[in-house]
Design a protein around this nucleic acid. Sequence first.
DNA 1: GGCATTAAGTTGTATGTACAACACCAAGAA
DNA 2: TTCTTGGTGTTGTACATACAACTTAATGCC
Lengths: 149, 149
Amino acid sequence: MGQDEDMKTEECVCIAGKLRLLNRVVTSIYDDALRPTGMTICQMTLLTVIGESGLTTPTEVSACLQVEKSTLSRNLNRLRKQGWLEMLSDAHGSGQRLKLTEEGQAMLEKGKPHWIVAQGKALRLLGDRGVKDLVALAELVCSQQKNGL
Amino acid sequence: MGQDEDMKTEECVCIAGKLRLLNRVVTSIYDDALRPTGMTICQMTLLTVIGESGLTTPTEVSACLQVEKSTLSRNLNRLRKQGWLEMLSDAHGSGQRLKLTEEGQAMLEKGKPHWIVAQGKALRLLGDRGVKDLVALAELVCSQQKNGL
DNA sequence: GGCATTAAGTTGTATGTACAACACCAAGAA
DNA sequence: TTCTTGGTGTTGTACATACAACTTAATGCC
């Protein structure tokens, strides 16, 4: 009786639609905050991942961020053109090593306070709980992708 | 002691980074499923919103989906070029009315079974709970945007 | 009426995204 | 050794996205 029919969300609401909406709103918070630095949140994320790893390969970054290799190729080239990134290749093409330049490191430092502002806004918008849910979801997805589900 | 220091998520994890990752993964699930139809999930979402409203304006759609007006302008034009959408303007430019064509309605019908497959995959990936959290978050964001926060 | 302001849409430019097709290389198989 | 195959990166094309600048229409003030 009245036992929690629990409004089957799958019937009504498009998961992708809602996620894409959230993505637009939140991305714009970060891009707005970072605009004075000349960086986008996409670029700062790349710099952060590469910086934390010391030396990485495009393939590793691609797996970590779940970005298509051709997308990544172009995004990395933009960073290189800005002078934020070095691409050390053994031969031409295959087996590249990615490494931040001094300028790249500096950009990360320059961006940090703006990022903190954006992170605070996002946190207030989504709520502590919402953010925790979101991060958990992302971790879940990453681990499942690694196991090839 | 050991009382739930609760790992302040804001210190470590970039909300935008995780959200963008989720967005890439989930969007590709829907786009893959819809590929045989020649529609993207973005386009299907637009058709759905316009279809449900009967007659709408770009401004209303823009507010509903939180899409920038110039983005929307181009997305709508693509739908029009496919013959899925009519744009009835009182004069030229301002005050357009959006209405699905017969073909647009047909595309929605054609897409539905593929959408259901994608929705099922997304549901399995994110879990019942995750989806509920996500939808709640999107509703929250929409309502806050309406109140101009 | 004439002018300023604002709202609505479009266009130029740039970035982010992915699929398909290609080039290139390394490692095995014959 | 030669051929094949799989992995890695780039390029062509197309779509999604947003900011800045512009055009046009509507509204209101004088």
